[in-house]
């Protein structure tokens, strides 16, 4: 049986760990709130943009735009959004596994698949599995995703797509459902699917386009990609904080349980020692009578 001192040492070490996990949980909770607010307040913009897009698509006039064209299956780019830091449960592993699965199951479908990873953890996870596909890694941008960063990534994607380096672009990220639930989501970013959306009531007066329809479309489509990336980043960030919060919460609870068990063990050992000492004293007293 472990000595009293050993048990005491273990209790204090578990207590220290618990303190850390508790603090991390608090920090994640605070960050989650902010991330959630950011994700929610970004929604109107994306919705409006999609509304404009679908009302444009309704007045279809045989659009010919590079970003709308289905070019078949040549090379594909997968943008994977993970976190830079760990200790957030299955957050990184889930989404990375999905990326791995996606690549393995589509290897036949495409000539080649390139992987762009956002976040250090995704790179670490996939380096030894599908390392040959990884072409680019962005680090240190997930914690405070600004529209600017999304814009840069979006522009990069649109550029490589327009140069016909890729024929399809997908994003894989954790969509934020609630603090304890994230949904691994795969979306196709390019070519853009122009879904006509619901019919708009009233007379269908022809739109005036300034400067002209193609110009407007040409500027709107890249924007759509940027917004999709931006939304992905925000959702991924909120999911990360949520995942960290719940995993740190269960870690704290496990620590508390362990402390309870160890304390019980400690008290038993202490009592046993006392009983032993008492018996020794009594038997000693008996012998000198």
């Amino acid at each position: 049986m472990a000595s009293l001192k050993d048990i005491k040492k273990r209790i204090s070490s578990v207590k220290n760990t618990q303190q850390i996990t508790k603090a991390m949980k608090m920090v994640a909770a605070a960050k989650l709130r902010r991330a959630q607010d950011a994700a929610v307040s970004a929604r109107p913009y994306a919705e409006k943009l999609h509304a404009v897009m679908s009302s444009l698509a309704q007045r279809e006039e045989g659009d010919e735009h590079a970003l709308l064209n289905q070019r078949g299956t040549g090379r594909a780019l997968v943008v994977l959004m993970t976190a830079d830091r760990g200790l957030c449960g299955g957050f990184n592993a889930n989404v990375s596994k999905e990326a791995e699965r996606f690549i393995r199951s589509n290897e036949q479908g495409f000539d080649d698949i390139d992987l762009m990873i956002i976040g250090r953890k995704g790179r670490d996870f996939l380096r030894n599995r599908v390392g040959q596909h990884i072409t680019k890694v962005h680090e240190d941008i997930t914690s405070d995703a600004t529209y600017k960063t999304a814009q840069l990534i979006g522009q990069e994607i649109v550029e490589t797509y327009s140069e016909e380096k890729y024929d399809a672009v997908y994003v894989i990220y954790n969509a934020f459902k609630s603090a304890i639930e994230q949904i691994v989501t795969t979306e196709r970013v390019l070519p853009i699917q122009a879904n006509p959306g619901e019919e708009i009531e009233g007379d269908s007066v022809d739109y005036i386009y300034e400067p002209n329809r193609n110009e407007v479309l040409g500027q709107l489509l890249p924007k759509l990609v940027e917004v999709q990336i931006f939304r992905g980043l925000l959702e991924s960030n909120a999911s990360e904080q949520g995942a960290r919060m719940s995993s740190m919460d269960s870690a704290s609870r496990n620590a508390a349980e362990m402390i309870g068990k160890l304390t019980l063990q400690y008290n038993r050992a202490r009592q046993a020692a006392i009983t032993k000492e008492l018996m020794e004293i009594i038997s000693g007293a008996e012998s000198i009578k």
Partner: peptide, 11 residues
């Protein structure tokens, strides 16, 4: 733009 404007989309 005034009320009653015809549908328009511009950059």
């Amino acid at each position: 733009l005034l009320p009653g404007h015809t549908p328009l989309l511009t950059t």
